[in-house]
């Protein structure tokens, strides 16, 4: 059989993820792409639980549990240690949730990025602090309900644009991905592996308990997030040049919102508001991609 993603399984069964967990899928794909020659660092996040209690582990690669705010710097420390020993073929990956990236880990990530340490930083974004019982984070989208933003006072702030913050550090590669498109995610990881410097990947991971959706539609939701333009897939090279990974025809936003309990309270006007915000952002990305076309054309020619 011809596989569209690598056949090797580094992650093992028996991990403690919920049914239909997007984060577990993201890890499975990441390890397929990176292989066993990888060292990971986890801050406090869902994955520090999913991995299992001492003395067991589910990832199948060496991994270091760090403090909540230090995933990125511990990874750069590991890279410095590997460099001192002359080991060049090992991938160092910081693997953090949205809380450990958008809120608590941002200063360490910013420092690592500024030094341009040679690591891959993967943020699996389930859009709230799911591990501790669904509290709002700065990655929670506008309109969503969490335990700290109940339906009457749903989240009125937009999702933080982490990709733009990282791109403003002029890092070589920033990309967003979705668990519904593993081929695309693996392609991006392979590219990240091939270049030097800090690489940031932002992957949308569905969370059935936190999003209050059925576990069986986890992958469908991740797909709809991209198809309704709520979570666009794009890359930023050198912090300046944008490239859309896919540009699907827009589906109605309600397709994405309806199956999720966290958006159930929204009125029609509020959904229209949300749609406008999404369109605004998407057209900005398309403009940027249009502007960056000459850069990618020139790159293709030199190859």
């Amino acid at each position: 059989m011809k596989y569209t993603i690598p056949a090797q399984e580094v992650m093992c069964s028996g991990h403690k993820a919920c049914q239909g967990c997007g984060a577990a899928l993201a890890m499975r794909y990441a390890l397929k792409a990176l292989g066993p020659r990888t060292i990971m660092t986890f801050p406090a996040c869902c994955w520090s639980v999913i991995d299992g209690p001492f003395p067991y582990s589910a990832v199948g690669v060496p991994l270091f549990h760090t403090a909540f705010e230090t995933a990125a710097v511990v990874a750069s420390g590991i890279r410095a240690g590997l460099d001192a020993r002359g080991e060049k073929d090992v991938n160092v990956v910081a693997w953090a949730g949205d809380g450990g990236t958008f809120d608590i880990g941002i200063q360490a990530l910013s420092g690592t990025t500024e030094r341009n340490d040679n690591i891959i930083y993967v943020c699996y974004d389930n859009e709230a602090y799911m591990n501790t019982g669904v509290q709002r984070s700065s990655a929670t989208p506008w309109g969503a309900v969490t335990t700290t933003t109940p339906p009457r006072h749903f989240k009125k702030e937009r999702k933080k644009d982490m990709m733009a913050i990282l791109a403003a550090h002029s890092i070589p590669y920033t990309a967003s991905a979705s668990v519904a498109y593993p081929e695309d995610f693996i392609k991006k990881l392979n590219y990240a592996k091939s270049i030097e410097g800090t690489k940031f990947l932002h992957i949308l991971a569905t969370c059935p308990p936190g999003w209050r959706s059925a576990p069986e539609i986890a992958v469908q939701l991740a797909k709809l997030a991209v198809q309704t333009h709520a979570f666009p897939l794009y890359e930023i090279h050198e912090g300046r040049y944008f490239k859309m990974s896919m540009n699907p025809a827009k589906k109605p936003l309600t397709d994405y919102l309806k199956p999720q309990g966290r958006f159930r309270h929204l009125t029609e006007e509020q959904v229209a508001d949300m749609d406008r915000m999404i369109d605004e952002r998407y057209s900005y990305l398309l403009e940027q991609a249009e502007r960056s076309k000459p850069y990618f054309d020139a790159k293709k020619e030199t190859k």
């Binding site: 069964s13 001492f54 003395p55 589910a58």
Partner: peptide, 15 residues
């Protein structure tokens, strides 16, 4: 302290 075991000891089929 280092985890050497694998989580395959946890038979999640019971969920």
């Amino acid at each position: 302290a280092m985890s050497m075991g694998r989580m395959t000891v946890n038979k999640t089929g019971s969920w």
